[in-house]
Amino acid sequence: MTTEDDANLRALADAGFPTGGFTEEQRAVFSGLTATELALILDIKRRLDAVEPEVRAHSVVAGAALF
């Protein structure tokens, strides 16, 4: 694993991804992300985190009935 690969996993961990629980195969995939791919995943995670309270509120009210 290169320093850049380590940086990918650190960035994911810093964003709240459970990298400690990744399988070796998952670590390899995430380690191999390009800078653009990593930025996209981190942006999606940030946006999902931003709406998490709203999503949780809907799931409490609606339960699994909608899904």
Rank of each mutant, 00 (worst) to 15 (best):
M1F: 08
T3I: 06
T3S: 14
D5R: 12
D5I: 06
D5K: 12
D5C: 07
D5S: 14
D6Y: 11
N8F: 01
L9S: 05
R10Y: 01
R10N: 07
A11N: 05
L12C: 04
A13S: 14
D14H: 08
A15C: 01
F17A: 09
F17M: 10
G20H: 02
G21A: 07
G21F: 02
G21V: 02
F22R: 03
T23Q: 01
T23V: 02
E24N: 12
E25L: 12
E25D: 14
Q26V: 11
Q26S: 13
Q26P: 06
R27I: 04
A28F: 05
A28S: 14
A28N: 09
V29P: 00
V29Y: 12
V29I: 15
F30T: 01
F30W: 10
F30G: 00
S31D: 07
G32I: 04
L33W: 07
T34Q: 05
A35Y: 01
E37M: 03
E37D: 14
E37V: 05
L38M: 11
L38T: 00
L38W: 00
A39L: 13
L40Y: 11
L40E: 12
L40N: 09
L40R: 13
D43V: 03
D43A: 12
K45P: 00
K45L: 02
R46Q: 15
R46D: 06
R46T: 13
R46G: 06
R46A: 13
R47L: 11
D49F: 02
A50G: 10
A50Q: 11
P53R: 07
P53H: 04
P53I: 06
P53S: 05
P53Q: 07
E54V: 14
E54N: 12
V55C: 01
R56T: 10
R56N: 13
A57L: 09
A57H: 15
H58A: 15
V60Y: 03
V60I: 11
V61T: 12
V61Q: 10
A62R: 10
G63P: 03
G63F: 03
G63T: 03
A64E: 13
A64Q: 13
L66C: 03
L66Q: 09
F67W: 13
F67A: 11
